[in-house]
Nucleic acid binder design. Sequence first.
DNA 1: GAAATTTGACCTCA
DNA 2: TGAGGTCAAATTTC
Length: 313
Amino acid sequence: MEMMNWEQRNLLNELIHGLRAAKQLQASPAPSSSSSSSCLTSEMKETLLQQVVSSYEKAIMMLNGSHNPTTERVMDPVVNSGKVPESPASINESPKSEEFLDVGCKDYSCKKRKMLPKWTEQVRISPERGLEGPHDDVYSWRKYGQKDILGAKYPRSYYRCTFRNTQCCWATKQVQRSDGDPTIFEVTYRGTHTCSQQGNTPPHKRAETKPNQNHIVEVVNYQNNLLDNLRTNLTVRTDGLEGHGFSFPVTPPPFYSYETFCHVGSSGPSDFTGLISTNTSTGSSPIFDVDFQFDPTAEIDTTGFPTFLHDSI
DNA sequence: GAAATTTGACCTCA
DNA sequence: TGAGGTCAAATTTC
């Protein structure tokens, strides 16, 4: 099995994330429907919509970053206690609408800010480019502070979205240089961008930070391809599940992390043999193992995008 | 001159 | 009370 690096996995994770939110939106009855329990409120829908957008943005950012010679991501972006990403769109921790959506530029308390989603990436700078900014992403940031951190060799820098005031975008990030390896920067993001930086990036930065339109179209095509292939090629092993019918839930479990969705095979990170399993802790729900493989040698179709192979476990 | 960065002061929370 | 996070005036850069 060929290598699928963590960027690709992370990208897939984001796409899954976006798909889940989109499906929730899709599964939601029309507003006119009389069924009440499963009907999402407009605020919840807006939250889900934001999650979809956020996932796409992150996926684009990842792809864009992967072409950036300045940085090299060195591991899974989430290092929060080694847990599953506290993704900006984590549904199981879906914030109430007022916490996320009713965000006024002026009235936005520190408490609410702390409830913003938070995730961490580790980024390695390339020797060729030196210290020229640890991490260029598609967004425009403004540095607003720097602090010496107790026990840390290097100070921590604080950045906020350039468009905080103009577009009430409360995304922030912290950049901390690693003590152990000075070429590695730990970048902690908090909050997702609500700004539309497509048209607002300062001209002098636009060219270097924005994916071009074709790139975006490619990403969307890529994502659609991935989803189609998942639908087409995914197989579900149901043997040994006598008495249990299987169907994908209309509303997926709160969060398929990469760890739960794509359990990397024992042969190492080059494998992309995955599992899907539901929670078995209650004993009432059977395990649904789904195996899929990412085969980079056979996946390049006419569009140049990978396809998923399938195999039973 | 506008925008970005620096840096000391202030605020919040454990 | 101290550490982490943010604010905002001063300074620098473009």
